[in-house]
Every structure is written in C-alpha cells, then in structure tokens.
Design a protein around this nucleic acid. Structure first.
Lengths: 313, 313
DNA sequence: GTGAAAGCGCTAACAT
DNA sequence: ATGTTAGCGCTTTCAC
C-alpha cells in the first residue's frame, strides 16, 4: 500500500459500507457494538487517518481559525498567539498563524491565503488599519476579530489605551515630571501607535504636562515595552541614566520588563483575557453571522511600577 | 448570493466551461486573450475565491507545512517560526504553527491534527524525543525535519552543540574558572537539555574543569539564554554578583542577551540559516520520498562575549 | 442497524 | 482553443 488508506479501504476490510465506517468514526448513532469493534480494528490495522480536507469540503465549514500577526518575534505577540491557539483548541478549533512583518501587502496576501483555505474566521493582531481591506472583508462577511486594537465596524477586544496612558502619565506627573516625550519606532504598527500617541497627548493635557522632544524631557512614555527597553539602551549610551536623569514607562507588560536588571515600569495588558475574549468574540461571530452588531470589549490595563521611573529632583 | 460563488458560477457568467475557468485561474495554457479577459472580469464581479480545500483534495497534495514548537513565547523560537514561515512562503508553501507547551501528549495530538490536514511535511522545533512517535511517523513516511535538535533517523539541522559548549567552557576556563555549574529548567525540552549537558561534561573534561553545584561554582553554563537570564536574576537576589562573584554564559543568542543591562555572554545560533536549511531539508524530503537517506546539517555556533563573564580573581 | 447514492469544488485527461 | 467527464475522500439523506 503505497497510498494512504481511505474510508473505503476500512469499509472493505471490516466488511461494511463506508457510511457505517463514517458513523463509527464520528461517533454517529446506530452502530452495533460488534460492527463498531470490527471497524475500529480495521482502522488500527490499516493505520487509517481521516482526510480532514475531504471532510471540510463536504461539511462546507472548517474548524480552523486564522491568526495574523505583525511580528511573532515580539514576545508579547508570541505569547498572545500561543494563548489564542490554546483557547481555540479548547473549543475544538485549530489555528493557522501568519506573520506579516508589518507589511500591509503581506497582510492582505496572508489573509487572502487564509480565506482560500476557508478558515472559519480570522483574528487580526497588529492590524495595519487598511480600511479598504477591512471593507472588502466586511462585505464578504468574513468573521473577524481585532485583538489588541479597536475599530467600530468589527468585533474587537483591546485594552483601554486612553486609560493606560492616563495611568502612565499620571504616574509620571505625580513624580513631578512635566516635560514628557512620547517615543515610538517603525516596528510599532501605525494603528496602535496612533491610538497610544493620541491618548498620551490627552493625558498630558489633563495632568498639566507638555509633550516634549526627548532631548528636553525628564521622562518618556514608550509605545511599547520593546521600544522602552531600546530607549533605555539608547539613553544610557548617550550618557543619560534611567531613572536618574530620565524616567521611562513602557506598555504591554512583557516578561523581560520584570527582570531586575531592566525593571521597567509599564502599563500591563491582561494577555490571557485578551486571548480568551478574542476567541470568544470570533466564534460568537462565526455563529451569529455578519448581521449581528459588532461588539467592543475594553479591558483594564494595570500600571506596574518598577525601577525605571522616579521622582524628578 | 448568500453562498460563495464557485468555479461553476464563474463559468456560467463568462459563458465558458469550468475547465476553461480553471485554466485561466491557474495560468494554464490554451486560453485566448478574449476569453481570459471575460473570465477575469467574471471573477472580479463575483468576488470569486478558489476553494483551496477542493483543490488540494483533487491534487492529492497540499502546499502547507506544519511547524510544531514547544514554546512560542520564547523569543528564540518565535523568531525561528517566523523565519520558517518566510522561507516556506518564498517557495510557495504556507505554514501552520502549533504550540505544545512542552507536553508530549499535546505534541502527538498536534501532529495528528496536522496529518489529518494532510500537510506536506512537518518541522519539529523542540522535539520531545518521543521515540515511539518518531517511529510511527517514520513508518508512515511523513516528511519530517528536526530543527535545532538532531536524530540520526531523520533529516535535521542544528548547531554543533558539542562545539558550542566547548566554546563556552573554554572561554570560562581561559578566564581561570575551574568549578563550573550547568543550569537548566523545566522549560528546556529534555532532548536539547540532554545534548547540551552531555556536551558540557565532555568540554569540562577537556578543559580540566569540574562540574560543580551552583553553590560552589565560580561560573555557570546555562541550557539557554532564558535560563541564563533567570539565573542572573536568582544569583543577584541571593547576593552573588554577576560577573563579580560568578560568571554566566548562555546559549541561543536571543536579542535580549544583547541589551546593555543584560550583557549576556552567549553561544549564538545562526537563526536564519537554521530556518533556511530546515525548510530546504524538509522540502527536499517531500520531493525525494522516505527512501532517501536522512541528512544532518550541523551549523557552527558562535561565541559572543559580553559582560556576564570575567576573569576569576 | 446498515447500505446506496448524491454531491462538496476542483483538476486533468481526453474529446472535439 | 474549449468542453466533457471522471474522480479526490468524505458526509448525509433516504431506502431497506
């Protein structure tokens, strides 16, 4: 046998029809114990493995969900993808993760590929914000969930960015800082960056602080933890100590931030909840169809104070 | 139209047969420019998207490769998965990444699911070493590639662990260290851990060093960078400075190791080459069939000296 | 309780 | 150059 056994081979070997084999494999009804045993034996002897492709084709639905992420090497998203897979698995779904490296064209291409595989739905992790693409997906009725960013038109779960940055800026203001820089990098997706920067500006206004260039600032809020950690590197290379000369606060709450030698004060996102809600939203959408109104879930971020921030002398 | 258009709808709309549609879609031969245009128009107007499931079913082969990884949240593997996907894409393949959390049962289950999806092959990233499982896969003729670990029975690409630990131990010995600890953690897969520990022991013998418990050691070699970084944390929490009181060297070469505040001396693995060779090996196996003898590619690790190691006073 | 038959959407000979 | 036809492996009525 050079080719894989099919359901027909199992049927032949156990002396029943393929419908009966199908019934026992899927735990269907109406199978006598004796026949069941015969079929199971044949399955084992033949090393039969059901063809998921054929099954999904005839069922007209798959239990695969696509996960598209900008940068898998960013541990925050690596962990999110991992959690998304775990929760999906618990509900009987598998995931296909696709990395876009932050390129909108790649993003569109990966989504297209996912759709050709007829995934049940797609979780978008660092969505580029490409409105045209989103429109197409929406008119196509593709079940979608934005995780970690928001858009009124689709289901999404994210952290309250406004509140997160308010937490960060207030913390800095309480420590006496008044001139605060906002720092980002190319690796932060535009959408997230825009949201955080806007929230930063608002928070500054509320707390009586001013956004300043890094050179003149006594503190800095970074777009995320990776940026924050790189910022600390850069600052210290230039001879400005953290937190001695400048305080730094990050966003996300990656593990590395908690290392004693890093000690990054940061606004932590609840990763487990983000993933759990993302999957829940997505699968509810799969069930409800495109007509149901989109929902937004806003989770509470949490300020974790460590040693990268201190009172302005 | 509540259901997705099929190739038949396109055929009808453009007034040709479905084979012709198929021909233009796959860039097949024998299509007049005029018909081609008509078909393309219909595709666009209908928003037709080929059903990859159906195509793969009839083609009897898929262009998906499965990637099973122990811990996606470990940035070394996150990046590896990302690179694997990139190289696979370049060759016209897509990837499905599955996380096992290091559980052998989950590993077997995820592989089974991948096989039911009829993936063309599987890249195993932190393989548990489950010999029974490996046997089954081998007799089934599943194209396999071990990335980052080795086994004579299958294709694999890894770094020369023996050489890597020799580099680490020699470095430490040159600095005057004689009592060296080997440190690991539960999160390191057993297979990798065993290989590295064995290499460590051999290197110690060659360099005239002795493996010592951490308490009495002046230096430590960690199973990987994550362990090394955690070790530094732990050591300093206990009041032993790094590298003042004890030198630490890691393995892998993750980005975090290069941060000034971490400054971890480590044995770096060439990630790009690992990924590129992994995909190449796997796809060549897909082409060559199970009969071809397995190949092992051993890449050279590189010692990167930073500030976590120094001369023993 | 079990089997026969009709597809799911597509590709690939083989006709025309 | 285009159409016809026979499946790929499976699920699912509907008979028996």
């Amino acid at each position: 046998m050079t080719t894989r056994p099919t359901i027909l081979d199992v049927a032949e070997r156990s002396g029943v029809s393929k419908s009966t084999v199908s019934n026992v494999i899927r735990g269907g009804p109406h199978v006598s114990a004796e026949v069941q045993q015969r079929v199971l034996d044949a399955v084992r002897e033949l090393g039969y493995r059901p063809n998921g492709l054929a099954r999904q084709l005839v069922l007209q639905r798959t239990s695969t969900i696509g996960v598209v992420v900008g940068d898998l090497a960013n541990p925050f998203y690596g962990e999110l993808v991992k959690l998304l897979e775990r929760y999906a698995n618990e509900l009987g779904y598998t995931t296909i993760a696709s990395n876009t490296d932050g390129h909108p064209e790649r993003e569109a291409a990966r989504i297209e590929a996912l759709l050709e595989q007829r995934v049940a739905g797609i979780a978008l992790l660092q969505f580029s914000g490409n409105a045209e693409l989103l429109d197409e997906l929406l008119v196509d009725g593709v079940p979608l969930a934005l995780v970690g960013s928001t858009d009124e038109r689709v289901d999404c779960v994210g952290v309250d960015e406004t509140r997160g940055l308010a937490l960060a800026v207030r913390h800095l203001a309480t420590l006496g800082h008044r001139r605060i820089a906002y720092v980002t990098s190319r690796l932060v997706d535009a959408r997230t960056d825009a949201a955080r920067h806007a929230s930063f500006v608002r928070a500054c206004a509320e707390e009586g602080c001013a956004e300043s260039p890094l050179e003149g600032a006594t503190a800095a809020a970074a777009a995320n933890d990776i940026v924050a950690i790189e910022l600390i590197e850069q600052l210290e290379r230039e001879g400005r100590r953290v937190p001695g000369d400048v305080s730094v606060v990050g966003f996300d709450g990656i593990d590395a931030a908690g290392l004693a030698r890093i000690g990054l004060t940061t606004v932590a996102q609840p990763r487990e909840e983000l993933a759990a809600a993302g999957i829940r939203l997505l699968l509810e959408r799969v069930g409800a169809g495109p007509a149901a109104p989109p929902r937004t879930i806003l989770l509470e971020p949490k300020l974790v104070v460590r040693s990268s921030t201190r009172r302005e002398p």
